[in-house]
Every structure is written in C-alpha cells, then in structure tokens.
C-alpha cells in the first residue's frame, strides 16, 4: 500500500502531461484546432503558451518533488524525520520567486492588453486624435452591436457615411439615422484591415465572443464598448454569447462573416437595397 500513493501521484501528472500533448490532435485545443485568425489573437495565444509553459514546468517540478518525498518515505522506513519550525530563508525564496514570475507576466502582457483594450492603442485607422481631430485614414466603427435577450441586433452606418472624428462617431452612436442598415445575428466585416464595433446591451449583461478571432468582451448595461479585430482569412466565424444572460442564453448564436473588402461592400449594397425595398420594383421585375 505504501507504494500505491507513490505510484498514484506519479501516474496522475504523467497522464495530465500526456493529455496536454495529445489535446491538439484530438481537437480539444483552441477552437477547431486553428491558430488565431487575427494578429492580436496570435499574440494572445503566445501569452497563453508562455503561461502554460511556466505553470506546466511548475506543476511537473512540484509533482516530481512530491513523488520523490513519498518514494523516500516508502523506501526508508527507518530514518528519522527532520522537524522544523520554519525557515525564514526558504519562505523568502518561495515568496520572491513566484512574485517575480507574476510580475514578469504582468509586465510582459501589458502591450497585448493595451492593444486589445485601450482605445488609444488601437490601430491608427480606428482612432482619431482627440474629440474634434481626425486624420486621412480614420475610418470609424463598422457597426454598433446591441445585445438583447436573446439576439444580437446590428446597426451599420450607411456606406455613404464618412466619419471624420470621434465627435461624429459619438453623434452616430447616440442618434440612429434613417439611412442606417440593420441586420440581426449576422455581422459582416472586411478582412485584412482592422475593424471596430461598438458593443452595448439593451437589457442585462451579455458577452460578445468570437473564439476563432480571440475576441471576447462583456456587454455592460450603460456602457458603449469599442472592440476591434483584424480578420486574416475570409470565413464565417461562430459568434456566441458567453455570459449567462437568461433562460434563452443558448439561443444567442450568431455569425461573424469576414469577407474581402469588395464582397463586404457588395453585401452592404444588397442590404441597403433590401432594407429600402418598397415592394414595387421587385414586383414589376418578376
């Protein structure tokens, strides 16, 4: 029986490690076994692997120590145990080393976090300098996404609308316009270039989550939150709500369609055509 626990604590971490290595090929890893579909997402994945490496090494080290101690105790039943009231040196070491590691992670990830969350660090086309300022490449948001129980309502600015500065964007967010285009559960965005949406909610807290783009952001009542991404590949990405928002939470499945710029423009045009359909032309064209 005394070797049982040695065996148990040795096998358990080995099994975990084995699973960890097998996971990607079993499709238990990142969504659909794919790398992130955005440059920022790839940096986030990098951080994930870094932390996985650190915690993995720590896990393996502590497990080896644990197994060694158990094994020593099992083999050497005669030896006397050393009794200690504590070691100041040891405590300082095991406080400073993890603190150092945490501090390193905290500092190392700041860039990625800032690029992901802080608007001033967004790609230059998405932010204009100051409230009134603007610059030539400024493009503004592609849409405003409003979560509600239990769907996503999307409002695109008219393709003719040009935002020159932040003030115009704010105005647009505050006042829906007659030429805005609307869809539900279907967000289109151009690929390659960075795009931004503003996220809000009509009722409770929801969360905007597109796993393949590594974008996740809570929609908080009363806040209008900018999110950006740069999809590298045209595709239909799964988009879900990832904040338990009520009994119909599971219904909030939608899609983000990333498509080449010309397809995106064609989509907006066809949306405009159908939204301003007066039923007359279509009837006579048939």
């Amino acid at each position: 029986m005394k070797y049982f626990w040695v065996f148990f604590f040795a096998v358990f971490p080995l099994a975990v490690l084995g699973l960890c290595f097998a996971a990607p090929s079993m499709n238990w890893w990142f969504p659909y076994g794919n790398p992130a579909m955005t440059p920022l997402g790839q940096q986030i994945d990098g951080l994930f692997y870094l932390i996985l490496g650190i915690t993995g090494a720590t896990f393996v080290g502590t497990q080896i120590a644990l197994v060694y101690v158990l094994w020593r105790g099992a083999v050497d039943t005669e030896g006397k145990a050393h009794f200690s009231h504590g070691s100041h040196e040891l405590e300082v070491i095991w406080t400073i080393v993890p603190a150092g590691i945490l501090l390193f992670i905290a500092l190392y990830q700041m860039d990625v976090w800032a690029n992901y969350r802080i608007k001033a660090n967004f790609p230059s086309g998405l932010v204009a300098a100051g409230e009134e300022g603007g610059h030539a490449e400024f493009s503004g948001p592609i849409a405003e996404v409003t979560a509600r129980q239990f769907e996503w309502r999307i409002r695109y600015p008219s393709p003719d609308r040009v935002f020159h500065n932040e003030r115009e964007v704010r105005e647009w967010l505050r006042n829906p316009q007659p030429d805005d285009l609307h869809t539900v559960n279907d967000l289109h965005s151009p690929t390659q270039e960075p795009v931004m949406i503003y996220l809000r909610t009509e009722d409770v807290q929801h969360s905007f989550f597109v796993p393949e783009l590594r974008v996740k952001q809570d929609a908080v009542p009363g806040l209008v939150i900018p999110i950006w991404w740069q999809a590298l590949k045209p595709d239909e990405y799964e988009w879900t709500c990832t904040e338990l928002c009520g009994w119909g939470h599971y219904k909030m499945k939608a899609r983000v369609v990333a498509e080449p710029a010309e397809d995106y423009e064609a989509f907006l045009e066809s949306l405009r055509e159908s939204q301003f359909d007066d039923g007359f032309q279509t009837a006579s064209a048939e």
């Binding site: 129980q149 239990f150 769907e151 309502r153 559960n185 119909g248 219904k251 499945k253």
Partner: peptide, 10 residues
Amino acid sequence: PGTYMPSFLL
C-alpha cells in the same frame, strides 16, 4: 424587435 421573439437566422 420590441418583443421576446428572437431571431433564428442561422
């Protein structure tokens, strides 16, 4: 919109 009937677009 304005009711609890959500979209089943997909």
